[in-house]
Design a protein around this nucleic acid. Structure first.
Length: 489
RNA sequence: GGCGCUAUCGUCUAACGGUUAGGACAGAGCCCUCUCAAGGCUUAAAUACGGGUUCGAUUCCCGUUAGCGCUACCA
């Protein structure tokens, strides 16, 4: 039985890299009928916030990701401590009475050069009696793992992504297991819980690859079975730097994508393509296909760039995937997604109206929020002001615009207000006027939409309704005559 | 500094010794067309560098360079 876990520390919003890690864990679990575990690694009491935890849940829920078991590390402190005691009792760890600052402060060049930084000389070898006596006297100490270094040996493991890994104990420092206040460090808590929760596969970011040697040591010392490891390449900024909120801003937070109008599945699909490939040139996959296709063999070893810029905050591929998803959605489904977006912008629109507008914008929006710009004239009671010259059709002039609008005002009241009815009426009008169809449509489009680029004209007029159309066209014509132009010029 | 990992078009990636180095996004052009989109077609664009091994290296080995990670009583 496969058991995997996602172990975020609630010290910030849900990072897109973390989300991807969750997804790969989830895909692997679902693929093999395993168990997905959410373990909140909240051993850093200083930086944990409830708000951050909520943001993680929000992001995960939005993506439609679920889990089968949930734990909180802070509730499992006794277990961690007990495992540390076990390791200490076996003599595989020792008490280090060095005060916190003294050790760190001078750990610079000189020590680095000598290699002495690997452990704390003297502390490591104090006698059992002295150690016990000082501990009993209440002296503060941290429990350090005693890395077997007298005779250097290789610590090895096989990573499902990176292959055979090996590191000499001569290059592994005596890391801490328990802090001087008795709380467990990340390394200890993580491994203790992985053993206790019978985790079979640890799937996490590549930034833990080097830490894994320490973890292998802990697993062995604790007498537990060492899980399998699969490290994932990191998600980085265009300059190769690690993604951080401080320098890269909101683009690293999952909620930013949600709020910008990404569809959960499109975004998940995008994340999956970063550092993983099904190897057959497929890019758009449903959730089921993703779980069928996922394997660690397809995971890449080099970091993946999330390609954003200051002008363009979202990776073009993510946007494209989103647009593709929008285009393939059933109109009612898309409309249902769009409705709350429009309403959230303070616009009063009902579901029936939204359903009419949706097919007109479907191919023209990349993010759900784009509907606010693309369909603005459907919602506005008063059109935003536009230049009168906008009304001029291609190879035409103000007079031609005026004639077209006047003609429209003449035929539209009696026209069949449907796509086909409008098309035949307007095309006939252009023939009557002796101008091209496009020259007839352009002024009407601007009069009705307030700008030159808009959804297809006939459908737009139909949805807008006769009354609104006539009013807007009349208003545009008035703008023209105000400039002294008359249709006969 | 030490140790570890990585290196194919601008970006995401395919090619697990033999290909005109493929696809996608983004870019450019053309077509379609009531504008914008969408769609179709075309186009430009990459194996970091240097050595090996081999009949033959993107692919295997070594070195260089570069990037990233770890090197905390953070996770």
């Amino acid at each position: 039985m496969i058991r995997v876990r996602f172990a975020p520390s609630p010290t910030g919003y849900l990072h897109i890299g973390s989300a991807r890690t969750f997804i790969f864990n989830w895909l692997y679990a679902r693929r093999h009928g395993g168990t997905m575990i959410l373990r909140i690694d909240d051993t850093d009491i200083e930086r944990n916030t409830e708000e951050s935890l909520n943001s993680i849940f929000d992001g995960l829920n939005w993506l439609g990701l679920n889990w089968d078991e949930q734990y909180r590390q802070s509730e499992r402190l006794a277990l961690h401590k007990q495992i540390a005691e076990t390791i200490l009792a076996k003599g595989l760890a020792y008490r280090d009475f060095t005060p916190p600052n003294a050790a760190g402060a001078e750990k610079d060049d000189a020590q680095h050069a000598s290699g002495a930084w690997l452990f704390n000389p003297g502390q490591r070898e104090i006698s059992q009696e002295e150690s016990d006596r000082r501990a009993a006297a209440g002296e503060k100490f941290v429990v350090r793992f005693r890395v077997p270094r007298e005779v250097p040996e290789a610590v090895t493991f096989t990573d499902l992504v990176y292959g055979e890994q090996s590191k000499s104990t001569a290059d592994i420092e005596d890391f801490a297991l328990l802090r001087s206040d008795g709380t467990p460090t990340y390394h200890l808590a993580s491994c203790a819980d992985d053993v206790d929760l019978r985790i079979t596969h640890i799937v996490r970011g590549q930034d833990h690859l080097t830490n894994t040697f320490k973890h292998v040591l802990i697993f062995k010392a604790a007498g537990g079975e060492t899980p399998q490891f699969a490290h994932l390449p990191l998600l980085v900024a265009p300059n190769g730097a690690k993604l951080s909120k401080r320098i890269h801003g909101p683009v690293v937070s999952v909620t930013t994508y949600r709020d910008a109008g990404f569809l959960p599945h499109a975004f998940m699909n995008f994340l999956c393509l970063l550092g993983w490939s099904p190897k057959n040139d497929r890019e758009q996959m449903t959730r089921d296909e993703l779980t069928q296709l996922f394997s660690f063999e397809g995971v890449n070893r080099s970091n993946a760039v999330v390609n954003f810029t200051d002008e363009d905050p979202f990776d073009a591929k993510a946007v494209w995937l989103n647009a593709e998803t929008i285009r393939t959605m059933a109109v009612p489904d898309l409309s249902a997604e769009l409705l709350p977006v429009v309403q959230a912008a303070g616009i009063a629109v009902d579901a029936a109206k939204m359903l009419q507008i949706t097919p007109l914008v479907q191919e023209r929006i990349r993010l759900l929020n784009d509907v606010l710009q693309v369909a603005d004239f459907f919602f506005a009671t008063e059109l935003a002001p536009y230049e009168t010259t906008e009304l001029i059709p291609k190879k035409g002039d103000l007079a031609m615009a005026a004639r077209a609008l006047e003609k429209a005002l003449e035929v539209l009241p009696g026209a069949d207000f449907t796509h086909d009815g409008l098309e035949s009426a307007l095309r006939a009008s252009s023939t009557d006027l002796g101008i091209k169809a496009g020259q007839m449509f352009e002024p009407i489009r601007v009069a009705v939409c307030g700008r030159k680029t808009a959804p297809p004209l006939f459908g737009t007029l139909e949805v807008l309704g006769k009354e609104t159309c006539l009013a807007r066209i009349a208003k545009a014509l008035a703008k023209l005559t105000a400039t002294g132009i008359t249709p006969l010029n």
